[in-house]
Simulated scan of single mutants.
Amino acid sequence: YEKRSNEQIEQTVIKRPRVGTSSSSLYLDTINRHMLDFDFEKVCSVSLSNLNVYACLVCGKYFQGRGRSSHAYFHSLHEDHHVFIHLHELTVYVLPDGYEVKDSSLDDIRNIKHSYDLNNKKYLPGFVDYFILQNFDKKSQLVQRFSTLVRKIWNPRAFKGQVSPHELLQEISNASNKVFKLAEQSDPIEFLCWFLNSLHKDLGGTKKRNSSIIHNIFQGEVKVESQPLIVKSDADEKDRLLFDLNREIETIRTPFLLLSLDLPPPPLFKDEVEKNIIPQIALTTILAKYDGRTPQ
């Protein structure tokens, strides 16, 4: 690349920051979009600091600051890479000149927190998208480590074929006061209930409906309609209990994260290895108690 003299660098430094227009955005053609990956931890590749981090839009590396003594500034001089984006404020600057660029061609990069479908239309991020795209620097360690694990699992450029959840398991053990340990098996229902409620609380969720992504995705609602029955002592067993349509029906709506299902009884006969045969029953049959028609 063309070397600059000290005089040229000094002239570049004393330029005042200005808002870039289409005529001043001279380096936008150097942006290399296929090198950009915002799923990595937002820390400087030199100082490992997570404060005031910029991403080089040419090579995709992260650097701290944009002042004269910053790593991003020196990177722009040494590598001749000039376009940087602030990873939290999503503002784009040209270095070492130091002016901000506002150009519509950068909208796809600025919107790194949004999700798009195959038709390039925005859609509401789901559970995985939420933990990949959001910034959790101010959240609990449980949320941060779970987000890191999700990013690793769905990272298309991962150099390993497997991902270890060891860091998340360590934090689960600490956050649960050793109730769920690494070397001991625990009840999966208890763990799932604790894990979802802990994520909900750490994400700022309350008892209100849809107050966090956890309740928005996993929480459902059961509507229970009840009515006093008429008991006839002189009637047959089938006709002893009757509904009176004229009586008031009480309706209760109850939110839930987990639903209990009644499993079918095991069969009397055993298979060839002296074990009970597991009956094959459709899930819709087990869920029939919640279909709104089956009395309980």
Rank of each mutant, 00 (worst) to 15 (best):
I249W: 03
Y290C: 06
R145F: 07
K152C: 12
I14P: 01
I217A: 14
E89D: 13
V143S: 08
H82Q: 05
N177Y: 12
E272C: 03
S173E: 14
L95K: 07
V150R: 02
K138D: 12
P165F: 04
V231F: 15
D29Y: 01
V101A: 02
L259Y: 08
E250W: 02
L36D: 03
S233Y: 14
V128Q: 04
F131W: 06
Q219I: 03
L77S: 04
K61H: 15
Q227P: 05
E41F: 11
K113N: 10
R4P: 01
D117G: 01
V163Q: 04
R240A: 11
P266F: 14
P255D: 13
I189Y: 12
K152I: 11
F136Y: 09
K121D: 10
E274K: 08
E100G: 10
V101S: 04
D137Y: 02
S105T: 00
T30M: 07
L263V: 05
D234A: 13
R157P: 06
C193E: 15
S147A: 14
Y27S: 04
A158W: 03
S233A: 10
S69V: 11
Q141N: 11
L48Q: 12
F159I: 06
K42I: 04
L124A: 13
A183F: 12
S5F: 03
E190N: 09
D97V: 09
I281S: 09
L133F: 07
S24C: 04
K139R: 11
F146N: 02
R68I: 12
E41L: 12
D244E: 10
I112P: 00
L196N: 10
L149I: 07
F195W: 04
L196W: 09
L263F: 08
G220Y: 01
S70H: 11
Q144P: 03
L203E: 14
Y123T: 08
Q170K: 10
D244T: 05
C56H: 06
G204S: 08
N216V: 06
C44I: 10
I14T: 13
D97R: 07
F74R: 07
P125W: 02
L48R: 15
S198H: 04
E190K: 06
K270V: 05
I85H: 01
L263Y: 08
I112A: 01
R253D: 15
D137V: 02
V46C: 03
D262K: 15
N197G: 05
G205N: 05
I109E: 00
G126Y: 08
A288C: 09
R66A: 07
G60F: 13
T251A: 13
K181D: 03
G20S: 03
Y27G: 01
A72Y: 14
D236I: 04
L192C: 08
D103Q: 00
D202I: 02
E248V: 13
D108Y: 00
F180I: 02
H86S: 03
T12I: 10
I281E: 14
E237F: 15
I31Y: 00
L259H: 05
N119M: 09
Q8E: 15
S70G: 11
S212R: 06
T91G: 03
E248Y: 09
T91R: 03
I132K: 15
I153T: 01
K15A: 09
L36V: 01
